[in-house]
């Protein structure tokens, strides 16, 4: 039997349900602040192989022959991966000064860089230097090139292959020194990205369409 009390209760139930659903919908997308209204950012992001600093030595014929045939490597190298110093200046102020090294326990894996610096909008001069910390001669990076004997027998063509492989590793590694010195206009909320171009072997700027380079 439908009574006035039943009707009132139904109306109240509907109203409470509607209010609850409205609260659910409102709480589903509450707008909350994330970044400041008048900020911009300089972001550094790249991955690259560190250089390999090695001391290489050509083995003597007696040393080679003392080893099992399948282990006869004529040039042996020992060394470590290079580490790098990163310095970031914006309008002359030092924002970042840190050491970057390769990944892995022995730090010989690729290094991955991701840094972000808050910058006020406007025209800013950016100076960036990424340089190897270790001093090393070209020989220590390339390894010993002298091979006492000609490539014959099982060594035929091996010296060339080893040289090619060392060259590939050198080209794959980041250059010993990278710099960027430029002025750029940071629009509010804009992120300016600096990354490493492995083909051009240099640092490049990447910005969205709202930004422009200052000539």
């Amino acid at each position: 039997m439908i009574t006035a009390r039943t009707v009132i209760r139904a109306v109240v139930a509907l109203a409470v349900t509607a209010a609850g659903l409205a609260a659910l919908a409102a709480a589903s997308a509450v707008r909350l602040p994330w970044h400041g209204a008048n900020t911009a950012a300089l972001r550094l992001s790249w991955s690259a192989h560190p250089e390999r600093i090695e001391v290489c030595r050509a083995l003597s014929k007696a040393e080679v022959e003392a080893r099992n045939e399948h282990m006869r490597q004529r040039v042996e190298c020992d060394g470590k991966a290079a580490t790098y110093a990163l310095r970031v200046r914006v309008d002359g102020a030092l924002l970042g000064d840190e050491v970057v090294q390769g990944g892995g326990l022995r730090h010989d894996r690729p290094m991955h860089l991701l840094q972000s610096y808050a910058v006020s909008p406007g025209v800013r001069r950016i100076q960036l230097e990424f340089s190897r910390r270790e001093r090393a001669s070209d020989d220590s990076l390339r390894g010993a090139a002298a091979v006492p004997d000609a490539d014959t027998g099982i060594f035929a063509g091996r010296a060339a292959r080893e040289a090619s492989e060392r060259g590939r590793l050198t080209r794959a590694a980041v250059p010993p020194r990278l710099t960027l010195d430029t002025a750029i206009t940071f629009a509010p909320q804009q992120v300016v990205l600096v990354t490493f171009d492995p083909d051009g072997r240099r640092l490049v700027l990447r910005v969205d369409t709202a930004s422009r380079r200052v000539p």
């Binding site: 709480a27 997308a29 707008r31 602040p33 950012a41 804009q190 969205d208």
Partner: peptide, 20 residues
């Protein structure tokens, strides 16, 4: 349910909707 602006890694959004 509203749809916010598309994600843009090179823009710093001032605010975003958050599901409480």
């Amino acid at each position: 349910a509203p749809l916010a602006d598309a994600a843009d890694p090179l823009r710093l959004a001032v605010a975003t909707p958050i599901n409480l």
